Amino acid sequence: MGMPGDMTGKVALVTGAAGGLGRATAIALAEAGAQVCIVDLNADGLAETAATIGDGAFVHVADLSRPETCAPAVAAAVARFGRLDALCNVAGVLKLANAHQMALADWNLVIAVNLTAPFLLCQAAIPHLLKTNGSIVNVSSLAAHIGEAYAAAYCASKGGLSQMTKALAMEYMMQPIRINAISPGGMATPIGASFVPPEGADMALLARFRPMRGLVEVEDMARMIAYLASDAASGFHGADIQMDKGITAG
């Protein structure tokens, strides 16, 4: 996949940027010319990402599972750079469990990070993005489109995120903003590494979601997110692009 559209002079906020897809997305946006506000709970990981990007990175440490941290993250980006052109909601949490045994705290954490935080970040960012004809890219999942055993909370959160994306796209259909989602399949990221089946899991059920073509490349996904964030993707609004190497095809 080629480089994304030109982001020179633009500012992007990327969550989950301490590693994995978030870090790759921040790097892809910086390579396209953007200044990037990188947000995560992991301060050490953010420092490593910032060191890779260089002067165009601004670090903001925040625990997005706490609703009160979301609007300040957007405010910090605007205060630092004076504008906001793209919001990339990449941060995510996966907790697998037998549904009848899942702890409420784990359910709440998944919903908070994967669904509530993206909404609150969108809510805070939209007034700024309307001024810059900006864009939102929400990272959903193939779990938004198919049921996955032992992942009720994750499926619920990502399904909600995909539908939220479409609802916001309709609400702002006549406004100068683009709002899209992308639904990756399995990737070699920290979330993927946390895929540990619960005790007693039926491995045949899990095998149904094993990609026949292998894992999606993190860098390919990051470049697609950066492309959607740029003006080169002006034709996309309300889309949910499934990039999963064919898992949801049938």
Rank of each mutant, 00 (worst) to 15 (best):
G2K: 13
G2P: 11
M7T: 03
V11I: 15
V11N: 00
A12E: 07
L13C: 04
L13S: 03
T15P: 03
G16H: 02
A17P: 07
A17M: 00
A18H: 04
G20E: 08
L21T: 04
A26E: 06
I27N: 00
A30Y: 10
A32M: 08
N42P: 06
A50E: 04
D55N: 14
G56N: 14
A57M: 01
F58K: 10
V59G: 01
H60S: 10
H60Q: 12
H60G: 08
S65D: 11
P67N: 13
P67H: 11
P72I: 01
P72M: 06
V74I: 15
V74F: 08
A76Y: 01
V78R: 10
R80E: 14
R83I: 08
L87A: 12
L87Q: 05
V93I: 11
V93H: 03
L94R: 13
L121D: 05
C122E: 13
Q123A: 01
A124F: 13
L129D: 12
N133C: 11
V137A: 02
S141E: 04
L142W: 10
G147R: 05
G147P: 04
G147K: 02
G147L: 03
A149C: 06
Y150P: 11
A151I: 09
A152Q: 07
Y154K: 05
A156V: 02
S157H: 07
K158E: 12
L161S: 10
Q163T: 15
E171C: 10
Y172M: 07
M173C: 14
A181E: 06
S183E: 12
P184G: 01
G185L: 03
G186R: 13
A188K: 11
F195K: 09
P197T: 02
P198G: 05
E199W: 01
G200F: 13
G200S: 11
D202A: 07
L205N: 05
A207Y: 05
A207W: 00
R208M: 13
F209L: 07
R210D: 13
P211M: 02
M212W: 01
G214F: 12
L215S: 08
E217I: 11
E219I: 13
M224D: 03
M224I: 08
I225N: 00
A229G: 13
S230P: 05
D231S: 14
D231T: 09
D231R: 08
D231K: 12
A232H: 06
G235W: 10
H237S: 14
G238Y: 09
A239R: 03
M243F: 15
D244E: 04
G246K: 04
T248P: 02
A249H: 04
A249N: 07
